[in-house]
Amino acid sequence: MPEPIIQIQNLTTRFGDRIILDQINLDIYPREVTVILGESGCGKTTLLKSITGLVTPEKGEIFIFGRPFTESDEKKYKETLQRMGVLFQNGALLNSVTVKDNVAIPLEQHSHLDPELIEKSVAVKLRLVGLTHAMHLLPSELSGGMRKRAALARAIALDPEILFCDEPSAGLDPLSSAALDKLILTLKEQFNMTILVVTHELASIHRIADRIVFLDEGKILFTGTLEDAKSCGIKTVETFFETGSF
């Protein structure tokens, strides 16, 4: 088994008196799509945000690319951030600038490419997500699905080594959802990308998951492959894969 690209050790996150994540230990392996799933409110998004540093955990350590992911060493922290991309649940596009400028931001800020190559590169990313025609539109002029695709184009602008996706299929029609999953698989295969996806869309899980992390009330109930999950002997997990509900 390869060295894990992300290591989470004894991660505990609390909002007020409520423990959201309780002593989580988890390894994420490179070139795999790991799906975090569980009931609403079980801590999936908090886990993703804790890994990406958007939520400060109460206890525990996170190692990304083999080194601690903390803001104490700002240079290394920023360097690590540039090797990661995040697709937020609602896209989180900057509303004041066009789709093209949204996707160009990481390239303009973190590479020394000239405007010609940046424009071409942005066009390629937007073509991948099927949004070339919407290049000059503002996010407010896009539909929900288009906004999500534009956000994905921005997340992969720098060809990150790790891509985090928070409910990528939520609010999308089945065709768009399937197309997005196909793109996620292309990114994994083409660029050896490690992809961490939070979702509970069963169809999507079947299409993309290499590994499953099943969360329940802030604790990991199961980790393993999709096949193992279906016959793991844990009732909640097996029920989910049989019925698609918790």
Binding site: K120, S121, A123, V124, T132, M135, E189
Partner: peptide
């Protein structure tokens, strides 16, 4: 093979950049 796939997937040839309004 991998590079060839990348050249096909991410080719910018034929990508038409629409003019701003």
């Amino acid at each position: 093979a991998k590079t060839q796939k990348a050249l096909e997937t991410f080719s910018s040839q034929g990508v038409k950049i629409p003019k701003p309004p």
